[in-house]
Design a protein around this nucleic acid. Sequence first.
RNA 1: GCGCCCGUAGCUCAGCUGGAUAGAGCACCGGACUUCUAAUCCGACGGUCCCAGGUUCGAGUCCUGGCGGGCGCGCCA
Length: 566
Amino acid sequence: MQAFTDAILTALAQETSLAREDLKLETPRNPELGDFAFPCFPLAKTLRKAPPKIAQELAEGLAKRLEGIEVQATGPYLNFRIDRPILARSVIESILKAGDTFGHSQEGAGKTIVIDLSSPNIAKPMSVGHLRSTVIGAAIQRLHDALGYTTVGINHIGDWGSQFGKLIAALDRWGEEVDLDNDPIPALLKLYVRYHEEEEADPTLKEAAAAAFRELESGVDGPVRAVWRKMTALSLSEFDRVYARLGVTFDEVRGEAFYESYLDQTVQRVVDTGITEESEGALVVSLKQFGENLPPCILRKTDGTTLYATRDLAAVFHRWELYSFERCLYVVGGDQRLHFRQLKHVLDRMGLEWEPRMEHIDFGMVRLPEGRMSTRHGKVVFLQDVLDEASRRATEIIKEKNVNLTNPEAVGEMIGMGAVVFNDLKRERVKDIAFTWEEVLAFEGDTGPYVQYTHARLSSIGRKAAAAGEGSGKCDFEAVAEDSTLILELGRYPNVLVRAAAEAEPSLLTQYLLGLSRMINSWIAQRRVLGQEEGVTSARLALANSCKVVVSNGLGILGVPAPTEM
RNA sequence: GCGCCCGUAGCUCAGCUGGAUAGAGCACCGGACUUCUAAUCCGACGGUCCCAGGUUCGAGUCCUGGCGGGCGCGCCA
């Protein structure tokens, strides 16, 4: 498909003597008009002619330069239409030839993308909020993998900070009252909530927590550290169960604690650039030059311990030295926009020219209809419950609809996970989501299961054709000439990947797959593959297989399973 | 109070980085299963693109100012 747009752009460039980069093709709103369009308005000024006249004049010259592509001037637009059989053959053959690498490229060869994703806090259950960072980050990583980048997915576990001082203090006091061994996460959560309830009334609790964190950070390998280690291990094994269900893996799992030994040199490195100052007993970098009201970045608290920002700086230095990344993407909620702005400003003040490569890939909050989720106040929806319920409901439906299926539980799990993951990737990243069970458990309409169902139907057609021994003949591409809207959409897939990766926006791919699935289901309803003339069946089967390849590849990148039956 | 993000059909959202008549899903209504899976398809209904200015041949899209909602604003992460 690229070949066609390339040819058109080259011809346009020659005919108008403008640079190719300045010319942009669009898709006509009405497909009847053509496959690609070029609006002549921008040329009006330089040529001092009316756009419709320009279109008319250009059309004649272009027609001579283009073979297999019809040119027509319609008002101020030039519309291009590719010869139907040529289009069909070109798109279908390139998809079937590439197979599961269709849409892949080498544009990222030799470049490394670091992605910071998921990053849950230990000692807390994962909520539906953590799901977003996990699935968005994983999709962004696979998008870059497909484009030939070297990617490094890092799960930056929240395993450090004063909150663990609190937890250790709470464990110290009430540890006997909870069952840490059999039900670790809820037990820790209970302690965390209780600490926050009681710290107001009991100031010694606050001091005990601060002391515990001081000891943790001092490096002393005593009882405090032992407790911390235990909490970490318990949490990580819980997380792994969720990641396995979601099909997410990481190249590195490095908690904040990993950077512990880098903290002093990190602070020193900033100090050496001469931009730090002492303010109210803390070591800070002033960011006033970027905005009068911008708070400074604090590197060390009055008591000498570090903060989130210090550890994030240590992490980004470490990553830069290790990977010399093209981009380092932080898939973190929008509530931390200020934090990342501050970090980038610090890098900027340090004179590091790679500062723009660090990007905060922010996303909207998941809220409950009645308001904000809060772990402390018990107003959360646990991810595990959502996954369980989605899987259960999908299995239930499957048993009802497809009694012949031998493994309804396994497929139900695929559909359930697909519904949850796809739903989270469906809309633009930045948009907030109001969590409702009704929405995550929807299996009809604009949902993951709709796309999965499309894939299952296409797979079924392939199976039936093979069983009947049909469709292996020479394709009559005239037979799919009428299906050019679908074929053009298939051809667009590689560009969708490029754009989705560049913008770190998986929703471009989910939206594309929804639109494509709509076209496919409509096509299936009105065209029969089996039992036609050999050339017709072969061509239609090739088209169906092309659709299957694109849907399957797209779902793979999103991390949504593509069942062949459901 | 200040800063950032969002505002498109009753609800949830697209809108190809400024182009031709603003599109889907859900819900509601009417049709289509002895024919490759009805988790589907076809049709009907549904719009002051938050408001007011501005830039432009052209604005849902860009700029300014409002309004509404969300998030954040020095020793939490």
